[in-house]
Every structure is written in structure tokens, then in C-alpha cells.
Amino acid sequence: MLCWIVCYLIWLISALDGSCSELPPVDNSVFVGNETDEQILGIYLCIKGYHLVGKQSLVFDRSKEWNASLPECHLGHCPDPVLEHGKISSSGPVNASDKITFECNDSYVLKGSNWSQCLEDHTWAPPFPICRSRDCEPPGALVHGYFEGETFTSGSVVTYYCEDGYDLVGTQMLQCIDGEWNSSYPTCESIQETPKPAEQSALEKAILAFQESNDLCSATENFVRRLKEGGLTMEEVKFSLEIKKTKLKTDILLKYHS
């Protein structure tokens, strides 16, 4: 601060002895100058409660003319607040520490803080909110699916469906609430078919029929009946049994030598 005062006094003495032109006045400001060999560099500082509009630094050279237009000190400490599709409590200049409030127009909803304060560093905090439409954007389309619903205004509902062969995973009905869908979109996933159990051969069915009866005669009759129902002859049965016998021997030998 002392340096600024000394610099200003040097500039003032130069002005009084006629070597400088009169100091250009700027209301509600303080001028600080710094003299060099060929020129004087000056800056304007607005007093508390005002903010500078225009170029702050000015240079006085040998032509004794200022090289820039003068700035102005405007009442108010922060940039004018703006809220699209809404209203602000203040309509005039805002000073440091002043607070303002926000309100959205009908059919819009406020997203963010409903108030803000002008700080000493010429900024607003919290940041200004936005007014978002209460209507929703069209919902997303599904791969292998579709939705039913033609309006997306606040309160409207859309319903999702999947194509044949696909299952819906997630919320089927979505509702528009204050500009946002109340749930994430579902998905359509392919239906996994359950594998069918392997069918028993005619011989296996005949063997099971044989085992179901404790009486040997009844068991034999059941066995023969099942063979006939399956269309098997005794020769085919004998051949199948020989194959099973050979396989059993092979499995036993492999297990014994392993």
C-alpha cells in the first residue's frame, strides 16, 4: 500500500509542475501510478461495493495522451445473475455478501441450490441452478424390444416389451417425474432353453421293466413286452448286451491298470 501512495505522489508532483496532463477522473475509484524513464503506468481500483468495467491499466507517454478509454466503477460487486425459465429475487446491483433466491416458471423444476451469495472475490456461491423442463426426453429403445407410450410429459408412463424368444430384465413400467424417468431402462435377454433329458433306449426300458417285478416269470414277460414295444428283436438285444459286456470289461481293465 505504501508503494502505491509513493508512486501516486510522484505522479501528482509531475502533474503539478506541468509535465503531465490532468489525471482523468473515474468516479468511485482510486488511481495508482508508477513512473519510469519514458512513461507512467497507472491503474484504477474501485472502492468497496463497486466493480470495474473496462480496462484497468492506462499508460501515459511523451505524447501526453492516454492510450485507452477510461474504465468505469459500477455499483455492485458480482456479475448480474441470470436464470433462464425462472425468476430472481433481486433486480438491481448486488453488493458483497448479498444473497439472492431463485424460482422456476411453471412446467419447470429447479435443479441446484435455490439461493446464491455474492462473495468478496466477485463470484457467486453456490453456483447458479438451472430450470429444467418437467417433461422427459423420449425413452431409450431396446435391442430386441420396444415400448408403448406416446406422451412423455410429467406423470406419463411407458411400458416395455421384448420380442419372442427374449425375457425382460429390469423395470417394465417407467414414469416421467420432474423431467427424469424414475428407473433405468430394462434389457431384453435371450431365453435359454432347458435341455431335455436324454430318452431311454428300448433296451434300457426293457431292463427296467424286468427289475420292477420280483417274480421271475412276470419279470420275463415284462422284459419281452417292452422289447416288442420298442421294436427290438432278440438278436438285436443279444448284440447290444455283448457290446455293453465288452465295454464293462474294458472299463474294469483300465481302472485296474491306472
Rank of each mutant, 00 (worst) to 15 (best):
E235P: 08
F60S: 06
L16H: 09
H122F: 07
C104R: 03
E221I: 07
N67P: 08
D80K: 05
E84L: 09
T171Q: 14
I130N: 10
E189A: 05
W181T: 00
T123Y: 11
V169A: 10
D98T: 09
S213D: 07
L75C: 01
D37Q: 13
D178R: 08
E199L: 04
E204V: 00
C118W: 03
L232S: 02
I5C: 01
F152W: 12
L254N: 12
N222L: 04
W4E: 10
S107D: 09
C20A: 12
T151E: 15
S184F: 05
V143Q: 14
L208I: 05
A96F: 09
W11Q: 10
R225W: 00
G112P: 04
A15G: 02
F223N: 00
N214H: 05
L75F: 00
P186H: 03
P186C: 09
G140V: 11
I252D: 15
W66H: 10
L70Q: 03
C131H: 10
V143F: 13
D17I: 02
R62H: 13
T171K: 14
D80P: 07
L83G: 02
A206Y: 02
M1G: 10
C73Q: 05
V6S: 09
G145T: 05
E148S: 06
E204W: 00
S213N: 02
V94S: 03
G155Y: 13
E235Q: 12
E65K: 15
K48P: 14
S156V: 12
Q200E: 00
T194R: 03
S184Y: 01
G165I: 08
P79N: 10
E242F: 11
Y160N: 15
P71K: 04
T36L: 08
S97R: 00
N105I: 01
Y108S: 03
R225L: 01
P195N: 03
V157P: 07
Y146R: 14
Y50A: 03
L203Q: 00
P195H: 00
A141V: 06
P129L: 13
D17L: 04
G179V: 07
R134F: 07
F210C: 03
V6F: 06
V169M: 11
C217A: 06
S190I: 05
C3V: 11
S90R: 12
Q192A: 08
K255C: 03
S183R: 01
I47E: 07
L16Q: 11
D167M: 14
K48M: 11
E193W: 01
E221G: 06
F128T: 04
